[in-house]
Design a protein around this nucleic acid. Structure first.
Lengths: 360, 360
DNA sequence: GGCCGATGTGAGATCGATCTCTTATGCGAT
DNA sequence: ATCGCATAAGAGATCGATCTCACATCGGCC
């Protein structure tokens, strides 16, 4: 038997290190590193020897050691409230693709909308020395963990949120415009009793008034809807506005409340995917058919909407691109840019026919 | 005002290291590490001083250095074909939760079902020195990258797949049983013309025969369906079996083919989420109503099914638990267990009424 | 009084790759 | 023949936390 016991089965070797490669190739560690890393200068002949040695030993660089020495991990951290939401999921796909294109890995953590877990996630990612952070903050008030406390700290870019008076880049969509266009369309079609179903953080229950700590997207959508009313010279009845935590149960409850009013709303603007599902469920309970008994427009074009019957109108956002743009901004900061920017992407109304025309 | 230069804006400090904490607390690095890491022995008094020093400097451990020295990253790598599939997504949530409960981070990479990208993902994760790998392999044939080549290499557990004659743990569901029960139910209700729509890897097109390299889940579901036919003394017409890549377009095409046959199938067993969507889309094109004109049963209880109209019957699997169990097995191996196991979780048929009873 | 063991702390090596700095070699120009 | 310069490769420091081992101190006990 050999020196390391090649009994019957596999090879019980330890992982090969750079120094092992160097020994086999009969060069120094520095030269081996140059040959493998593609920097500095190496003779083609030497390079060849080193590459062969590395292959024969099945050498794999130790990323930890590399990052430790080089100071870069080539990894970005992503902190979101909920990966299973299809809006978030698509953004994440955009993020991962854009990051990978630039040679960066993405480390995604989710917080279920809990600020405490968000703080924890930021801490962990900083301990892992990620080169930058992409965050969808759960709160507009509790943001001290987003403040850079030192020089050369990994930069942060906010995704789908902005926070006023905060020196951070934001990449967002035009939520005001989207909600405005959606509600204006409802009004144009003759709807007057329009329920607004706005989704907030999951831990909020179902309530009538705006929660104190509401993220920017929700605020903007509420403002957009209100603006459409104002422009049409209509008064927005506060009783037709509901805020609900973005989970199935509360969304349905809130929708039930809206539909229980007299007169019953002829239309509902659902502020996100969960609200749309809640509105659908409540309508089904009451045996209301969409379009005929109740018009409906949602926010975010989720994949299931492609096959859903009846087809539902929504405000669509360039979600995948949102993630890509956020990565672009983050990489710019990682590479030393200091100028702050707020990128805003357009939203579009896709009318699939779930809005009845009451004028006819 | 404090001692460290609070000019006007932020503090331009570099990141504090352990040695800085040690200096402030007036102890050695070793002692500071003990106090912070909670190992070895330290006087309560010393511990207190160190903790205060760390807090005052806003010290954060450098995870890279720690992992490098300790040899453990407390991270598991997860390699899946597609995170946006709701089955995968739920498993991932189970994985992340179970891993977090044991103090492990999860690093999720997706491959879009491409074996080359899978190899690459495994390489990257090994370079990052993850402590273990959870993989949903894309192929049954090209698996050389799943073989451990050395001692003490990070263990691998297969998720939702098994590969025969391979010394790896698998955590799977009873796909045979699920498909068997689903098709038996169709047969019991009097269906004889039953289309089988089986989803394979995304890059496969739409084809009639089983692709050579089909993953275990699909093979088992096909076998389960066939067994139900055999038990009922029926012959399975090969023309009623279609394999399609798991993407919208091919799924719809395959479903169209099935529904174009004469006589038209009275029922379709859709082998996964995408196939179910494909079958729905094709049925809609032909204006077939579910239940009345076409019975349907799917595989995997996706979230959108909760509100989908008409309600659809499916084979449901304990997806979240699948992820958790996989983590359990992986942690066992990381902690030195060498016994191999194949864990199989039960499946259930949920009948929501999309299967007509032709006997009446 | 001296020895023992327990206890708390420090010095220094270590993990593995990279980076800086230095040295050796070769070739052309003067 | 010598100098200068470019090129290739090596030596050693470095990143930051942890771990081993050695050392100091102290109380108890014979």
């Amino acid at each position: 038997m050999g020196s390391d016991g090649d009994h019957t089965t596999a090879k019980p070797k330890r992982a090969a290190r750079l120094i092992d490669v160097a020994r086999v190739a009969k060069v120094s560690r520095a030269t081996a590193a140059r040959a493998l890393g593609g920097y500095g200068v190496v003779t083609p002949d030497t390079q060849q020897r080193v590459l062969e040695a590395a292959a024969s030993l099945d050498y794999r660089v130790n990323d930890l050691a590399r990052s430790m020495r080089s100071g870069r991990t080539l990894t970005i951290g992503v902190v979101v409230a909920d990966i299973s939401n299809s809006f978030t999921l698509t953004s994440i796909r955009g993020i991962i693709a854009a990051a990978a294109g630039a040679g960066y890995q993405s480390l995604v953590l989710n917080t279920d909308g809990d600020v405490e877990r968000e703080r924890e996630a930021v801490r962990v990612l900083r301990e892992k020395r990620v080169d930058g952070l992409l965050i969808v903050p759960a709160s507009r008030m509790e943001v001290e963990h987003l403040v850079s406390t030192r020089r050369h700290e990994a930069p942060i870019v906010l995704l789908d949120r902005f926070i006023d008076g905060f020196a951070l880049d934001s990449v967002i969509t035009d939520d005001f415009g989207g909600a405005h266009a959606a509600v204006r369309l409802l009004i144009e079609r003759g709807h007057r009793q329009i329920g607004l179903l706005l989704g907030t953080a999951a831990h909020h229950g179902h309530q009538e008034s705006e929660p104190v700590d509401t993220v920017s997207t929700v605020v903007e959508r509420a403002r957009g809807a209100a603006a459409a009313f104002a422009e049409a010279g209509l008064v927005l009845d506060p009783g037709l506005v509901r805020y609900a935590g973005s989970v199935a149960a509360t969304a349905v409850a809130a929708a039930r409340h809206l539909l229980a009013r007299t007169p019953r709303p002829t239309a509902i603007f659902a502020g996100n995917e969960e609200m749309l599902l809640g509105a659908l469920a409540a309508a089904r309970e009451l045996d209301l058919s969409i379009d005929r008994d109740l018009s409906l427009i949602g926010f975010d074009d989720a994949p299931w909407l492609a096959v859903f019957q009846p087809a539902l109108s929504v405000v669509s956002r360039p979600t995948y691109e949102l993630g890509q743009q956020a990565v672009n901004r983050l990489l710019a900061h990682i590479n030393g840019e200091s100028r702050l920017r707020r990128v805003e992407l357009k939203t579009t109304v896709i009318d699939r026919g779930s809005i009845a025309d009451l004028r006819s």
